[in-house]
């Protein structure tokens, strides 16, 4: 399934937005950015209002029964869509990579809807890297573990950023190292989590960037919370929020 096929059939690309509970509750601006970006690229965006949470927090903290319940609900909500787009590599990887394992471990059958991380959907399905964005700032990119080693999105996010007009992309040293968030790991092992983030923050500072970008607000909440606590002045932005910016937003 890709964009040209849709065009041949004379249809607009119909996308279901899986906002994720974290974005829905804490970062609605990211959701609005995804909607405006996808519409600009000719997609018809739907928001299935029955969605809640993919169950990652429960499953990864050891609450399998609750996780299975949420995974079942997720399957019901998104089963009918050709493409589901999530502005979170971690939640997309939860569905695509972990639902099959969860089903095996719990001995249940689970529907695994076709969920894409935003950068995968843009680059692989819509086949665009230049989304017409404008963002005249010095930016560094943290690839996040589940995008990198779960979904294996590779350099798709940076390919998108490289095409943003005005944007100066600075490579982040030791980019592939975890920031130490890890969901409930951040509060269950706060000393190690903070020690990991200290190194991530040092690497971010070394780039001299104004903005740290990632495709996951959970990791950004962690690194951003530390950047803010340390009064570094570096701000964090989700990939969607940068890609949604155009000259008109100045």
């Amino acid at each position: 399934m890709n964009h040209p096929e849709f065009c041949e059939r004379g249809l607009a690309v119909r996308v279901a937005l899986f906002i994720t509970c974290v974005n829905d509750t804490l970062f609605p601006g990211t959701g609005r950015a995804v909607v405006s970006l996808l519409r600009r690229l000719g997609c018809e965006v739907e928001f299935p209002a029955a969605q809640t949470c993919c169950g990652q927090m429960h499953v990864n903290t050891g609450y399998q029964a609750e996780g299975v319940k949420l995974a079942r609900h997720f399957g019901e909500v998104f089963a009918g869509y050709d493409a589901v787009v999530a502005p979170s590599g971690s939640c997309a990887s939860m569905v695509r990579e972990q639902y099959p394992r969860l089903a095996r471990a719990a001995g249940v059958t689970l529907t695994v809807p076709k969920v894409y991380d935003l950068s995968e959907f843009l680059v692989d399905v819509l086949e665009v890297t230049d989304v017409g964005a404008y963002f005249p700032h010095r930016v560094t990119y943290h690839p996040t573990c589940h995008s990198l080693r779960g979904l294996r999105v590779g350099d798709k996010p940076t390919k998108l950023l490289e095409q943003v007009r005005g944007l100066e992309l600075v490579p982040l040293p030791a980019a592939d190292e975890c920031c130490g968030f890890g969901g409930t790991f951040a509060v269950k092992n706060p000393a190690i989590s903070s020690a990991m983030c200290a190194d991530k923050v040092r690497n971010v500072m070394d780039t001299g960037a104004e903005v740290l970008c990632a495709a996951d607000n959970s990791c950004l909440m962690h690194i951003g919370g530390t950047l803010k606590r340390q009064r570094t002045g570096v701000r964090v932005m989700h990939l969607a929020e940068i890609l949604a910016r155009t000259e008109a937003d100045k």
């Binding site: 829905d24 970062f27 609605p28 509060v187 706060p190 903070s194 803010k228 606590r229």
Partner: peptide, 16 residues
């Protein structure tokens, strides 16, 4: 354990 080393994000006025 969170706020010892990290600031909290601002809660938005409206959810998505």
């Amino acid at each position: 354990a969170w706020t010892d080393t990290r600031d909290l994000p601002d809660i938005p006025a409206t959810s998505f």
